[in-house]
Design a protein around this nucleic acid. Structure first.
Length: 510
RNA sequence: GGCCCCAUGGUCAAGCGGUUUAAGACACCGCCCUUUCACGGCGGUAACCCGGGUUCGAAUCCCGGUGGGGUCACCA
């Protein structure tokens, strides 16, 4: 492995080098651990991406684990939705849910026995104790603390209960939670790969719950057990978890387990600079997928949110980022989600991907608009391809194609005032007649042929270009703006074009 | 409110003490291309939060303030 030589590319912060901290980089193992309480969120997707990138960059392993200890809100639907979004983005994993591995199961509710085993240890060593305070009691206490401006946290009421006390309280029907005995007077310093060292005073941390009264472990406990038993070396996650980290470190230490490296990436903010949520519009990967955003664009965009190459490159593939990613270049400050830029990037990918691929993506939207039947045969697919060629430069996302594809499928109404004006021009019948004659003799229309044909037209008619092209456009589409005529005609086909010109003429006279 | 994080144009960001009269991208504006719209090309407007230090020299380092955010659940 490369040693650090001062001018180190992998410097983690000013005075620290990534290579100095982990000598065996092939040992790197990260995890993405969503809780299945909803679809994959933009922020979650970025966390997954950064984890993936970091692992792949150093030939490490990725595990996907499901954190479903919130029985109320977790669902299998959300779980499969998250997994499908991950796959859609092109992020794979070596171990975990649905692919298996040596450290399974990978769903926390299926690991209850394991947590129980470690709970016993903690209980025996005195690190945790039973607490019988009710939720109501704690809530009122919390409010009082808040109001008084005191530190909010458990006061330690049940810290030193005797066996008899426990029996009595249980006799009252109380079910205990298990709390961790947070050592007082201790300062914990967390090494964070993007933030440097962050310190927390344990006096500011109340004894926290590690097992709920129903016997299910809480997030903070399950995470620690899993990260240890699964051999996770680096925890890359959103900054909102930073304040949970000391609690987890306390648990690692109590168990005598090595503490993994942490990297807390900043949050993605909405336009109003608060943490992105539903009220900021579309926030799930699924929604963007449905609107016709391409996974390449999403990946590219997400990678640029909080990370940069350091060069002037802005457009790149997942494989390319994989080669250059490093936590060192991850920004510390939060990033506002900029839909305009996503749209530009997605439009860029729509314009630069193979037409066939884009045409394929267009089909469902055109079907939904009623422009295409359920079964699309080869002939129709060819038309879709030509339509795609004609309109793709207008699109920011695929769903917008219906706004531009109408002229290819619906015959125009010629009711636009501007269009009527153009059709009433005196040269119109002659121009239309000329094109009709050419189309009749042309056979199958292709872009080059039509281009050549159109180019000659004004001269042959002794007219200016504008007097020829603008009426044709209006006659063919009923609109004064739209795709190039040489894209329009091949997609429409000769007979349909001729028919429209005649109808336009009739309208103009009528 | 306590604790924690953050601070370069409207947004994403480069910048790691002198090479900066501060890159690049999106957005915006103008011109060109196109006898339409868009695409594309060219150009332009626009930023180092404030105050103290340290230093010959600070956007870059330190401290304080201010501002923004996160977190304080038997949610994760």
């Amino acid at each position: 492995m490369l040693p650090c030589k001062g001018q180190c590319y992998n410097r983690v912060s000013k005075n620290r080098c990534f290579y100095e901290e982990r000598t065996d980089l092939s040992e790197i193992k990260v995890r993405f651990a969503p809780s299945p309480t909803g679809p994959l969120h933009i922020g979650g997707a970025r966390s997954a991406l950064f984890n993936w990138l970091f692992a792949r960059r150093y030939n490490g392993k990725v595990v996907v684990r499901i954190e479903d200890t919130d029985l109320e809100r977790s669902s299998r639907e959300s779980e499969s939705n998250i997994l499908s979004s991950l796959r859609w983005l092109g992020l794979d994993w070596d171990e975990g849910i649905s692919v298996g591995g040596p450290n399974g199961p990978y769903r926390q509710t299926e690991r209850l026995e394991l947590y129980k085993q470690y709970t016993e240890e903690l209980l025996a060593s005195g690190w945790v104790y039973r607490c019988y305070c009710s939720e109501e009691e704690l809530a009122t206490q919390r409010e009082a603390q808040m109001a008084a401006g005191e530190m909010v946290g458990y006061t330690g009421k049940c810290r030193d209960l005797f066996e008899e006390d426990c029996k009595r309280l249980e006799g009252e029907g109380r079910r205990p939670v298990l709390r961790f005995r947070v050592p007082q007077g201790k300062v914990l310093t967390i090494r964070d790969q993007v933030r440097g060292d962050v310190s927390f005073d344990c006096n500011g941390i109340g004894d926290f719950i590690i097992v709920k009264s129903d016997g299910i472990p809480t997030y903070n406990f399950a995470v620690v057990v899993d990260d240890y038993t699964m051999g996770i070396t680096h925890v890359v996650r959103a900054e909102e978890h930073l304040s949970n980290t000391p609690l987890q470190v306390l648990l690692f230490e109590a168990m005598g387990w090595p503490v993994p490296e942490f990297a807390h990436i900043s949050l993605i903010l909405g336009q109003d600079r608060s943490k992105m949520s539903k009220r900021h519009g579309a926030t799930s990967i699924q929604q963007y997928r449905d609107m016709g955003y391409l996974p390449e664009a999403m990946i590219n965009f997400l990678a640029l949110l909080g990370w940069s190459t350091g060069t002037e490159d802005e457009v790149f593939t997942l494989d390319q980022v994989k080669e250059s990613f490093s936590l060192e270049r991850v920004a510390k400050s939060p990033a506002v989600f900029d839909l305009e830029k996503l749209n530009w990037l997605n439009g860029y990918y729509i314009r630069h991907s193979p037409v066939e691929k884009i045409a394929e993506l267009a089909v469902p939207y055109l079907q939904q608009a009623g422009y295409l039947p359920e079964i699309v045969d080869d002939r129709l697919m060819e038309k879709v391809r030509l339509v795609t060629v004609a309109v793709r430069e207008y699109l920011e996302y695929m769903a917008q194609i219906v706004d531009y594809a109408g002229v290819f499928f619906d015959d125009p109404a010629y009711d636009d005032p501007e269009a009527k004006e153009v059709l009433s021009q005196e040269q119109v019948p002659v121009v239309f007649g000329a094109l009709r004659d050419k189309l009749t003799n042309a056979g199958t229309l292709d872009e080059a042929g039509v281009k050549a044909m159109l180019k000659k037209l004004p001269k042959e008619l002794g007219l200016g270009g504008k007097n020829v092209y603008q009426p044709l456009r209006v006659g063919l589409t009923g609109k004064t703006k739209g795709p190039e005529l040489y894209h329009l005609l091949p997609a429409l086909g000769g007979p349909k074009a001729t028919e429209r010109l005649e109808r336009a003429l009739a309208q103009a006279r009528g």
